[in-house]
Design a protein around this nucleic acid. Structure first.
Lengths: 350, 350
DNA sequence: GAGATTTTGTAGAACGATATACGTAGAACA
DNA sequence: TGTTCTACGTATATCGTTCTACAAAATCTC
C-alpha cells in the first residue's frame, strides 16, 4: 500500500502492467512475460500474475505493445462488402482466431482502377496501424505489388493463383476445375451453347484460371465452336447491358456461366424481363453458392468454394507466418457444384 | 550529415519523425505540431516540414501516436455482414472520412444472446486498440451498456432510438414513420389484412418504433382488427418456418410487412414454394431498399432509409465528438417508400 | 562439493509519437 | 528605449509495453 512512486496512479485511469506487477508482487518484466507466453516463467509466478490480472481486470493496450512487439491485430482486406460470399470468409477467419490472442480488423479496398499503384490507401493505413499481418481477398493488384507487400509484412492472399516466391501464401479454390465442373454439369443436362460471363478487367489470375477451365472443358467435350466469353465489370448497369446484348444477339446461348452469384442474379433478372424462361430458354449458373441461391425465386445452380474453409485456412497460415515461417505455402480447396433449378435438365425441344 | 546521435538510424527501417525533423532542420516537436495541425506553426516552417515528409515519404505510426494522443482510427461495428444495406452505411462513413486524417476499421459483433453483457469482445478489442471513437450499427445491447460505453469514449449509434443522456449520439431513420408509410402504401393499393414480420428478440428500440408505427397506422386507417405481428430471428430457418406458418394459417394475411429486405426475400421464396403468387395472393414489402430489390425476380417494394446518408452523418458527428463536443446530438432522416411489383395495386377479386 | 548449466526473475533502455513548459525574437505600445 | 505581448520553436518527460542483458537461485555433472 506504500505510495513511493513519483507518479501516483490516478484512479479512474486504465490499469497498466505496472499495477498488475505491484499487485502480484513481481516485476513488470515478469508480467510481460506471462502476457506473451514467453520463456522463463514458473507455474507459480504465472498463476500469481494471472490472478492479479483477473482481479484488476487488466487488458494490455495494443498501441503500447505495438511500439516494440506485436499488436495482435491482423487486417482483412475485402474488395467489396455487397457480396455475401465474403461473410463466409470472414466467419472462417474469426473461427480460426477464436482461441488465439489475435483479433481481425477489416477494411474495404475501394480503389478501383489504379492497379499498378505502389499499394492502396487502405493497405498503407493498415501498415501505419501496425497490423501484424494481412489477409487480402480477391486483390485487384499486380503480383509484383503483392510481392513487395509480402516483403514488408506477413501476407496471405485469397483468390490469386499467381505466386510471389516466398513473399506470400495463397489460399484458393481450384478455379479451373470449378469452371470445368460447370461446363460438365451443363453439358450433362443437355446444354451446349454455353457462354461465359466473365469479369473485366481480367488482370487477375483467378479470372484467367476460370476462363482456361471453361475453354478446355468446352473443347474436350466437343463444343469448342460454341466458346463465347463476354466480360462485364461488377457495376450493375454494366452487367445488365452485357447480358441483354448477349441474350438478344442472333445466336443466343442456351446457358450462361456467370462470374459470381451476384452477376447471375442480375442475369436472371434481365432474362426474366426479356420474357425468357429459366432454364427453358436459358440456363444460368453462378459461382460462390451464396445464401441467396437457395431462394425459390433464384434457385441458382452454383459452385461452392467453401468460403469459410478458405478464411479459416488463411488465418491459420497467417498466424504461422507471424510466428516466423518464411517459406510460402499454398492451399487449394476443391470446388463443388450445387445443382439447382436454374440449370435443371433440359426439356426436349418441341 | 553529421552523425552525432548515439543511435544511428538503421537503413531499411521505417522513417520516423526524428529523421523528418533532421532533414527539415527543425525540432521534433515542430514536426509533431505540423502533423497535428497544432497552434504555433508558421507557414514557412509548415511548408519546409511538409516537403521533408513528402521527400522521405514519412508516415506517422498510429501506435506511437496512440501512446499519448489519438490513433486517428475509428471503429465501425456491424451486427452482421450479409445484409448489403450495411455496405451503404459503410460507404457513407468512408465518404465523410475521405478528407480527414481518420481511417475506419470494421468488425462484426457476433455476440448473440448475451445482451446484458458489460460489453462485447469486439468492443473491448477496439478499446484495447485505442480507437478514437466508435460507430455502432444496430446494437443488440441495452441502452445502459451503451451509456456506459459512451462515458469511456466518443460514441455514435445508428439504429437505436433510446437516448443515453449526453453519453452518445444517435443517427436513425424515422422507423415509426417508415412503418406508417408501408401500411399507408399497402392500404392505398387495396390490401387490408397486413401482417408484420418483426424481429425477435424485440429488445431494440427500432423494433419497437416500427411496431408502434405499424399499429398506430393500422388503427388510424380502420384496420385495427387486422393487426398481426409475428416475430422471427434473423436465422434463415426461423424466418422460413414463421412465414410458412403465417401463410398457411386459417386467416391468411394479404400482405406482409417484413423487417428487412433479407427477410422479405425469404418470404417471397416461401410464398412461391407454397404456390402463392405475389402480389395476387400475398403482397410483400421489405425495409432498407437494398440493391437486390430491383431484380425482376424480387421486384420488392421497400423502404429506403438512405444508408449512405446515415453513415455519412454518423461519421461527421463522431469526429465532432472526438474534437471535443460533449453534448448529445440526434439525427433523423425521413424514410421513403419505393413502390415495386411485389406490392402493386391489387386486382379486383374474381 | 566445485564448477557448469539451466531456470527463474529483474532492471532499465528502448519504441515513436505527443504535449507541457519554457525560451526567444519581433511587434506594439508607451 | 524599455516593457509587454504574441507568435513561433524547442527541449524533454511521458505514454505502456517489450526485450536485452544480466543476476541469483536451483539443478546437474562428475
Amino acid at each position: 500500500m506504500s505510495e513511493k512512486e513519483p507518479t501516483a496512479p490516478r484512479s479512474g485511469e486504465r490499469i497498466t502492467i505496472r499495477e498488475v506487477a505491484q499487485d502480484a508482487g513481481v516485476s513488470v518484466a515478469a508480467v510481460s512475460k506471462v502476457l506473451r507466453d514467453a520463456y522463463g516463467v514458473s507455474d507459480a509466478l504465472r498463476a500469481k500474475v494471472r490472478a492479479s490480472m483477473e482481479k484488476l481486470s487488466y487488458r494490455p493496450r495494443a498501441s503500447a505493445r505495438g511500439m516494440r512487439g506485436r499488436t495482435y491485430t491482423i487486417g482483412l482486406i475485402f474488395p467489396d462488402l455487397r457480396n455475401p460470399f465474403f461473410a463466409d470468409i470472414y466467419s472462417g477467419v474469426n473461427a480460426a482466431l477464436e482461441r488465439t490472442q489475435y483479433q481481425a480488423m477489416q477494411g474495404i479496398n475501394t480503389t478501383s482502377g489504379a492497379l499498378n499503384m505502389t499499394s492502396s490507401a487502405l493497405i498503407e493505413a493498415m501498415i501505419d496501424r501496425q497490423m501484424d499481418g494481412l489477409v487480402i481477398i480477391g486483390p485487384n493488384m499486380e503480383t509484383q505489388v503483392l510481392t513487395d507487400l509480402g516483403a514488408r509484412l506477413p501476407l496471405v492472399v485469397i483468390g490469386q493463383h499467381d505466386r510471389g516466391g516466398d513473399a506470400f501464401d495463397t489460399v484458393n479454390n481450384d478455379d479451373q476445375l470449378g469452371a470445368r465442373l460447370v461446363v460438365r454439369y451443363l453439358m450433362g443436362n443437355g446444354y451446349r451453347k454455353i457462354a461465359m460471363l466473365s469479369l473485366s478487367p481480367s488482370n487477375s489470375s483467378i479470372i484467367q484460371q476460370r476462363e482456361i477451365g471453361y475453354r478446355l472443358e468446352m473443347m474436350e467435350l466437343g463444343a469448342g465452336d460454341a466458346i463465347n466469353i463476354v466480360r462485364a465489370s461488377q457495376v450493375v448497369r454494366d452487367v445488365q447491358v452485357t447480358v441483354r446484348r448477349l441474350l438478344s444477339g442472333p445466336d443466343r446461348p442456351d446457358a450462361i456461366f456467370c462470374w459470381t452469384d451476384l452477376m447471375a442474379f442480375e442475369a436472371i433478372s434481365v432474362a426474366t424481363e426479356m420474357g425468357l424462361s429459366i432454364p427453358e430458354d436459358v440456363a444460368i449458373v453462378g459461382y460462390d453458392n451464396t445464401m441467396f441461391c437457395d431462394l425459390a425465386q433464384n434457385s441458382l445452380a452454383s459452385v461452392d468454394q467453401s468460403g469459410e474453409l478458405l478464411g479459416l485456412q488463411a488465418a491459420r497460415m497467417l498466424v504461422e507466418r507471424i510466428d516466423g515461417r518464411v517459406t510460402a505455402e499454398h492451399f487449394m480447396v476443391p470446388p463443388r457444384i450445387v445443382a439447382r433449378a436454374s440449370a435443371g435438365p433440359r426439356q426436349p425441344q418441341d
